[in-house]
Design a protein around this nucleic acid. Structure first.
Length: 588
RNA sequence: CGGGGUGUGGCGCAGCUUGGUAGCGCACUCGCUUUGGGAGCGAGGGGCCGCAGGUUCAAAUCCUGUCACCCCGACCA
């Protein structure tokens, strides 16, 4: 079927929509691929749906390729399975909940771990049934606090989610690797620039976890990568390389000094370096914030506990606490900063002058940044107003209870793999693979009988691809000032045929070429509208089909023009040979 | 949830300060001309100015309330 512009359900817009900020959002709306119908909800118009379906097909192809089997659950789900795993409450406000006419609770699925686990339980019972991988391509619902950027972050979106079921940890490892490899093939076929970063496994539990992030300056996720190696990681997952331990023998003795009005690192450093003020002891050295040890007081609460516990985190004074890293390190416990009331209840905590001594004397758990190793000397609080200790040596004068990844990661920090330094970059999450382990299998008692007739608890993996998001991500990575530029693998059509004139000969020639291309299996969009050539050229470029064939004034000389959308290069081709030329081009 | 902003034909906007019954561009319809880079001229169709109160002879405009949406952040993956 030749698609004709004259009857295609398409209206392009000359101006950007007022609510769009990012390029993909502007272009997908302008080029008539999608239309907004609600906050975070978009309808797919014919062009957009074609691209979406092509991406789906690629995902499906690669999933089937690793032996995964497609099924489909309802999006509308009963409460009970989610109650069993605790996610009915844990998922919080992001869960779309609703009631039926009888008042029973339902939800719109945000992910389907529960249903997959239950289905495996009801259908499979022998070790001979395993391993198995199931997947679906389903509309997901999440009541995002703030949907944004068009279809990049909606409240309704299309996701491929698959789940592996294995009898052993080794099996899970294999299933994980299969998915990881399949994802690499999917994203390569889509022509994306992306990185695979180590991720924290988050609230879902489990161990190994990696995210696929498409590189995009408009991305919401910040990650770091090494300037010299392939290392890339989510900021939350960066492990700080610890410097080698030093001798504690050759360090000067710790000394307390009066340091009036120095409750902050900034005031402290200024005071230490201002010899005119340092009446008691001119230390004859210059200090930086990195020489100070800042002790941040927090309270943590383990799930199920009523009581909060004090926790002190010691880190170099030139670094701030990164809330996300801190929380990821303490997961699943809750964390909060200390309030005035907490300080009042613990008088040994002298705000602005807290040191390791008081913490450890009073049994406060004390974790330090990995840079605080044995033999390093610090300026830190002396647990007395207006006093600090200089040359307090780790391993000699205090011994932390352990280390914690809580300090901010900065550009220029050494890469954890020892090669190069870190730089920050932005990305959009397009895929996530992780080993769930037995959390869901435990919740539903998902077991199989092994060769010895013994019950084995199944272990699961969960793997997601944001299918609808990929449409926007590709647009985000592949466009120019004229419009979209689709990679051939996902383009809504192979060729746009533009009739750049109105003569009967031109029309007839274009129709004939379109017809022959169609017969050859090339997907043709024929611009047969009675619009001016300028309008047609502009729309052809906006819509972004990879090859544009112009039938126009050259026809008198027996040639037509083939233009490559991405490079802008044009070449004249004899009319007789153009079908063969394009067919070869399209088949690559 | 905190901060900022906006609601006026399908889309993008002006008008609001200083009340007088709605306008511009794009798109759409018709006619004539035009046809290789978003054509020209002419004639049209389409808007209870987010909603509800209030002030006034008169409200898109002033006052009060309310709702919605967008952007930044927090949250979420």
């Amino acid at each position: 079927m030749i698609t004709r512009m004259s009857s295609l359900f398409l209206r392009t817009l000359r101006e950007d929509p007022a609510d769009a900020e990012v390029p993909s959002h502007k272009l997908l709306v302008r080029a008539g691929y999608v239309r907004r119908v609600a906050p975070g909800g978009y309808s797919w118009l014919p062009l957009g749906l074609r691209v979406l379906r092509r991406i789906e097909d690629i995902v499906r192809d690669e999933m089937n390729g690793i032996g995964a089997q497609e099924i489909q659950f309802p999006a509308l789900l009963p409460r009970e399975p989610y109650e069993a795993t605790g996610r009915w409450t844990e998922y919080g406000d992001s869960l779309f909940r609703l009631k039926d006419r009888k008042g029973l609770d339902y939800l719109l699925g945000p992910t389907h771990e529960e249903l997959f686990a239950l289905t495996a339980k009801s259908e499979l019972s022998s070790y001979k049934d395993y391993p198995v991988i199931l997947y679906q391509i389903q509309t997901k619902y999440r009541d995002e606090a703030r949907p944004r950027a068009g279809i990049l972050r909606g409240r309704e979106f299309l996701m491929k989610d698959s789940y592996s079921f294995d009898l052993s940890d080794e099996g899970l490892e294999r299933s994980y690797q299969l998915h990881r490899d399949a994802y690499v093939r999917i994203f390569d076929r889509l022509g994306l620039k992306y990185v695979i970063v180590k991720a924290t496994s988050g609230a879902m539990g489990g161990s190994a976890s990696e995210e696929f992030l498409a590189e995009a300056p408009t991305g919401e996720d910040t990650y770091v990568r090494s300037t010299e190696s392939g290392f890339a990681a989510n900021v939350e997952a960066v492990v700080t390389p610890a410097p080698p331990a030093q001798s504690t023998e050759d360090k000067p003795a710790a000394q307390a000094h009066p340091t009036p009005d120095t409750p902050t690192i900034e005031t402290l450093v200024a005071f230490l370096n201002d010899s005119s003020l340092n009446t008691k002891a001119d230390l004859g050295r210059t200090f930086t914030a990195a020489d100070t040890l800042k002790n941040v007081l927090l309270k943590v609460r383990r799930p199920g506990d009523e009581e909060w516990q004090l926790l002190a985190v010691g880190l170099p004074g030139d670094r701030e606490v990164d809330q996300k890293r801190l929380e990821a390190s303490l997961e699943p416990a809750e964390v909060a900063m200390l309030e005035e009331a907490d300080f009042a209840a613990n008088p040994f905590l002298v705000k602005g002058y807290i040191g390791p001594k008081a913490l450890q004397d009073n049994g406060v758990r004390y974790l330090v940044d990995p840079r605080v190793v044995t033999g390093t000397a610090w300026v830190t609080g002396a647990d007395k107003v207006d006093h600090h200790v200089v040359d307090l040596v780790c391993g000699r004068d205090f011994t932390p209870d352990g280390t914690i990844e809580a300090a901010e990661v900065r550009e220029g920090d050494p890469s954890p793999d020892g090669k190069g330094t870190l730089v920050a970059a932005r990305g959009i999450e397009i895929g996530h693979v992780f080993q769930l382990g037995r959390k869901y299998a435990d919740a539903f008692e998902l077991d199989a009988l092994d060769e010895n007739s013994k019950l084995v608890r199944i272990t699961m993996g969960s793997y997601g691809v944001g299918v609808s998001r990929l449409v926007a991500v590709i647009a985000e990575q592949s466009h120019d000032e004229h419009g979209l530029v689709w990679p051939r693998e996902v383009a809504p059509f192979d060729v746009t045929v533009v009739i750049a004139g109105k003569s009967d000969e031109q029309i007839a020639a274009a129709e004939k070429i379109a017809d022959e291309l169609d017969s050859a299996g090339v997907r043709v969009l024929l611009d047969d509208r009675k619009a001016s050539p300028g309008v047609k050229f502009a729309d052809a470029e906006l819509v972004g089909v990879p090859t544009i064939l112009v039938v126009g004034r050259g026809l008198a000389n027996g040639v037509v023009e083939v233009k490559d959308r991405r490079s802008g290069e044009r070449e004249e081709i004899a009319v007789d040979g153009v079908v063969g030329h394009l067919t070869a081009l399209v088949r690559g």
